[in-house]
């Protein structure tokens, strides 16, 4: 009854109007979720998770087909392009820290990137997930715009990758601070690299709550991990044939 009414309602509004409305809808839901997170600061209230659940729930409830939503909203996500270029600014600002800690960051991120590919593909195989899903999982530790581009390149599904990246970030800020205690990481370099490599932008936001040094090193690690991933993931993937990919 209710659903029939909603279907009628969404049919009555012209498709173009809905497409245009998808931008203010996304922006306002995101702004509201951000405000809620600032009030309580609870990891599961992470604005990324809450706004994704709310927005996806709303589209399903309104029976709005995704392409119709995306017809308008793709303008918003096209800003991911200049945002990736913008990573050059923190990289430039903290070039001294990058140079000072180059061996530690370089070695840590190399191990992390290799581990990301091996464990994603290996565990996906163990769990009995399909080949396409495994390929979409491989780039999930790096920041979304780059992860989606890498997924496309290695034969994964960029949309699934975008969701996996966000799941990685949210799970990462849940286990990351706990891991730094278990492993007794005392240096800001270790803690920052852990958060930036493991949980990209979402982890970096959390790393700034640990300290400004941790945050800076995390943002550096995130950018360098993305650059390394672009080169390493397509190189490593053929070797993974041995484990699982056909």
């Amino acid at each position: 009854m209710m659903n029939a009414f909603l279907t009628q309602l969404s049919d009555a509004v012209s498709p173009d109007l809905i497409s245009i409305l998808s931008i203010p809808l996304t922006v306002s839901i995101h702004a509201a979720c951000r405000r809620v997170y600032r009030r309580w600061r609870w990891p599961l209230l992470s604005p990324m998770l809450t706004s994704l659940v709310l927005l996806a729930g709303l589209l399903v409830l309104l029976r709005m087909p995704y392409p119709r939503y995306m017809a308008g909203a793709h303008w918003l996500s096209s800003l991911l392009q200049p945002a990736t270029v913008a990573f050059a600014v923190p990289l430039y600002r903290h070039r001294r820290a990058l140079l000072d800690h180059a061996p530690a960051i370089g070695a840590g991120l190399l191990c992390g990137s290799v581990m990301a590919v091996i464990s994603s593909i290996g565990l996906a195989h163990l769990a009995g997930l399909g080949d396409g899903v495994a390929r979409s999982l491989a780039p999930r530790s790096i920041t979304t715009p780059v992860a989606m581009a890498v997924a496309k390149q290695i034969g994964g599904n960029p949309v699934l990758t975008a969701v996996f990246v966000i799941a990685t970030g949210i799970l990462g800020i849940l286990v990351g601070p706990w891991l730094t205690r278990i492993l007794r990481l005392r240096t800001p370099v270790g803690r920052g690299a852990l958060m930036g490599m493991g949980a990209h932008g979402i982890g970096t936001a959390r790393a700034f709550e640990m300290g400004s040094q941790e945050g800076t090193l995390s943002s550096l690690s995130m950018v360098v991990a993305a650059l390394a991933g672009v080169v390493l993931i397509p190189l490593l993937l053929p070797w993974m044939n041995i484990i699982s990919l056909h």
Binding site: A104, G108, M115, L123, F164, G172, L179, L185, M195, S221
Partner: peptide, 22 residues
Amino acid sequence: RLLLVILTSTALVMAITGAVAD
């Protein structure tokens, strides 16, 4: 299963990166 794979893999990536850098 996806969630479990992502959780385990993320923990492994974080642990090795943090331990080596530290």
